[in-house]
Nucleic acid binder design. Sequence first.
DNA 1: TGTCTGCTAGAAAACGATTACTGCCAACGC
DNA 2: GCGTTGGCAGTAATCGTTTTCTAGCAGACA
Lengths: 330, 330
Amino acid sequence: MSVATVSRTLAGNYPVSEGARARVMAAVESLHYVVNVHAKALSGRVAGPIALVIRDITGPSLAHVAAGVEQEAAARGRLSLVCATHGDPAREDDLVQLMREQHAAAVVLVGGAELNDAYHERMAQYATALDSAGSRLVLVGRPPLPAGLPATIVEYDNRGGAFQASSHLLAAGHRRILFLGAEREINTGVQRRTGHLDAFRAHGVPYAEELDLPGAYTRSSGYVRTRDALRAGVEFTAVFAGTDMVALGALAALREAGLDVPGDVSVVGFDDVPFAADLTPALTTVRVPYEDLGRSAVRLALEREERVAGDDHVVLSTQLVIRQSVRPRP
Amino acid sequence: MSVATVSRTLAGNYPVSEGARARVMAAVESLHYVVNVHAKALSGRVAGPIALVIRDITGPSLAHVAAGVEQEAAARGRLSLVCATHGDPAREDDLVQLMREQHAAAVVLVGGAELNDAYHERMAQYATALDSAGSRLVLVGRPPLPAGLPATIVEYDNRGGAFQASSHLLAAGHRRILFLGAEREINTGVQRRTGHLDAFRAHGVPYAEELDLPGAYTRSSGYVRTRDALRAGVEFTAVFAGTDMVALGALAALREAGLDVPGDVSVVGFDDVPFAADLTPALTTVRVPYEDLGRSAVRLALEREERVAGDDHVVLSTQLVIRQSVRPRP
DNA sequence: TGTCTGCTAGAAAACGATTACTGCCAACGC
DNA sequence: GCGTTGGCAGTAATCGTTTTCTAGCAGACA
């Protein structure tokens, strides 16, 4: 009995006699044989894995992107590789190289990034390098690349979500809204701020510069910025936190100052992390379809690989989720 | 210039003349060459990946295990494969088979499991099947296997944590403690209940059967059980929730009933999820070293592979984190 | 009976690397 | 001047599959 017969029996794509099949199956059983993917990949084609490159898996929102990627990948018979960069660009370089070696079907890069030339240059390199290795670069929630580069972009509507959130506050009568945005020129921060300013413009309300407080997207930064604003006597009746984690910090600072939410100050967040509904008061926030982002990333990349029609650039919508942290108009 | 020279230049484990090396590097640069892992794996040895098999990545605690696994794997030059089972044992079977094909260095199974013969039989099969393929089975937070089976076990002290939590409540004067445990014979649930009962015994307090309410480890189950207990007029001054998610539901039910925490009812949870400190009141709970569990799983499996001394069974300790959800003794 | 056809099995060439082995050439010792 | 040694490069075997091509054998048909 030759190796060819075994291969054909297991693949089932070629006639094999009943007797031979039985003997092969018996041997497979008794030896606990499993094919060697590496050998299989060398000759016949094997579906490449999906690589997810993420800053940190434990972030509540990023974990959902990971879940979406894993789910869609599994549904299409792919394995998911998960790698954390901890924000180190050098590590990102290494991982892209590594994924080229691994023949990943798609390399999904997730998370906001600074909008500058260095970023675009790096992404352009990634895109062409991966393309030449047969992998597809997918950017999720990151600034898009100039058309023509071999990359798939999955964005979500930061501006629209922020517009809805700020409009909600303005409609409730708030005029002085503390804006706890992002530090530096992170794309998500810039877009959310644009939506915020657009809402002011749409409502014909002038924008007070001193209420715009950039900082890190962390709980502690939200706490510090809110506490310091209160100490400095800055007047505001609402807080628009750049993320739910920032909102968490803001809520802590307000509570510490003896202020009631939403009685004295209203708060909105951004992300709709799972525990947002469990805070006291339940947080009004902008829902970002994180799981969908992950699923879309994989779907678009693989549909393209399978020569199915598929976009190379989608923008998923965001939606304001109204809970109890904003005081309704009296 | 032969392929051998290229291989030797890149591996750097054999003398190559300066000229040849330069020409190889130039070609590598211009062609954007990367080695093919599959070919490399077929001949020279390649470090196998670490596979993480988990019920659901989005659980706040499981995400931390994943982060620990990824971190330790990356530090040791391994890739991490993440797969979700969504609680389907058939999917788990498939994944173990798949990981044998992938030549994973370790297959890490995470999450509580029912203590019965079927479980032990399945795990025993996994252990030997993986062992014969050169992979190591690692069970994290799951019931250990009989000694002699080729598996590594990483547990944490459920009983001790529960003992501390219940002792804390008893020491604060609580006698009627609602225990929101697990449904069925899940190992974590059984062990936490044992710790709870041991604390009563240690304090010489009789245990009231009607306060023992088994159910799912979910937010909604915590809510329903607490609400129904209140409606039924069950008397209690404290709640020991089996997990922080359950505590979340209990807090919601108590708040809805107009009860103050910790003024009227004290609450403790289990897990110490990241947002536990941000609840109102901040939740007193048992810290489980999730990230450490993940790191230890990888470390033990790989140290064994590398023939370094290493245990095959560790139990990490848990610790009560005292915050504001328990009323101190008056 | 000879040939054609259809079914199944084996032989061998890929796939892309690593590495033991062989061999060339220059330098060196005697 | 000749044998030896050592440094470096090429040849070829190997890893475990898939797949193409070849071949054997039986039955059908003329």
